[in-house]
Amino acid sequence: MSAPAIDPVRTPVPSAAVRKAAEPRRATPARFDTALGWSDRPSAAWALRILLCAIALGIFAAPFLTIVSGAFSTHASGSSLSFLPRDSTMLNFRVAGERGIWDYFTNSLVIAGGALLLQLAVSVLAAYALARHRFCGQALILTLFMLTMMLPEEVIAIPLSLVLGHVPVVGLDLKGTAWGVILPLGAWGFSVMLLTEFMKDIPTEIEEAARLDGVGEFRMLWQIVLPLCKPALGVAGVLGFVMIWDQYLLPLIAAKDPTDYTVTVALSILRTDPEVGSGVVLAGALIALVPSLIVYLLLQRSLVTGIAAGATKG
């Protein structure tokens, strides 16, 4: 008696829907979406947003273009709006140089560079202690840093002038020196608070693993914490430089002689000089504007990344 024949197993034929789902998906072009809800399809709302952006760009760009055109114009006027130079010339920069603008510019560079380095060093050390350690009086110290941000410069101008003239304990007279401007700017509450909040988000597991390998405090800060805080350092660097570069009252009260002034104070002197015109003042303003633009362009990526990280935190 022969065994019954066994039919071979038939492979089920996939349906059209299954075959379509199994096919590799083609990459679809990304839409041009922004926070304003833009799309790549022209419409009335799309045109309205373009118009609003053009108006905003004109409002912010008009002063800058006026400074550039007036600095290179023979007959510049601060009350007229002009985007193109009239009778282009370099005479305004030469007259500004004769009035000592480059000496004031050098003073500003020395003060801004020294104060920014000192400010970042103090902010990093203070933020590391406040964020990664617990000690008595920590809340009080944080409150004091916040209070320093609420005091206007005019309130502390006279006491600061007296202190700079005779520093307590050591009895030094810092007026007329770069240190008279650098030291008061060496600590800024905003950068301390910014770095403190950023360092608090660093996982404790990283620190614990590093300590098991015998990493000390200084190495922990230099090789582990600081590389993770590059975006926050970029924000603190850009905003700190702009704050220091735009100082007006502090260089004025810390100076003993007009040669000690910075470029911001020199611009007010040029403006009141009856022998120079608006073109010379605009040329000096353009010279004073260049360092801030350079610092922003160099640290733009870190600035945007740091702001984005702060916006999405939590």
Rank of each mutant, 00 (worst) to 15 (best):
G279Q: 05
I59K: 03
A127R: 04
R41W: 06
E207K: 00
E208L: 04
L228C: 07
A71G: 04
V238H: 07
A21H: 08
M150P: 02
R49Y: 05
L84H: 01
A35W: 14
A236L: 03
G234A: 07
G113N: 04
S108Q: 02
A210Y: 00
V215W: 08
S82W: 00
L293A: 14
V68Q: 06
D40T: 09
V167A: 04
I224K: 00
E208N: 07
S82C: 06
V9Q: 07
D7A: 14
A126W: 01
Y261F: 15
A54D: 09
A236K: 05
A47L: 13
R41L: 11
A21F: 12
Q138T: 06
S43C: 00
T143E: 14
A17Y: 01
E205G: 05
I50P: 01
F145P: 00
T74H: 00
P258K: 05
W222M: 15
F241Q: 01
G70R: 11
I202H: 07
G234K: 04
G306I: 05
N107P: 03
D260M: 02
E154Q: 12
A121R: 02
S73V: 04
L228D: 04
P227F: 04
T196D: 03
V13Q: 13
A61M: 14
T74I: 09
M1K: 13
D173Q: 03
Y128I: 00
A209T: 08
R10N: 12
P29H: 07
P203S: 11
L91G: 07
Y248L: 15
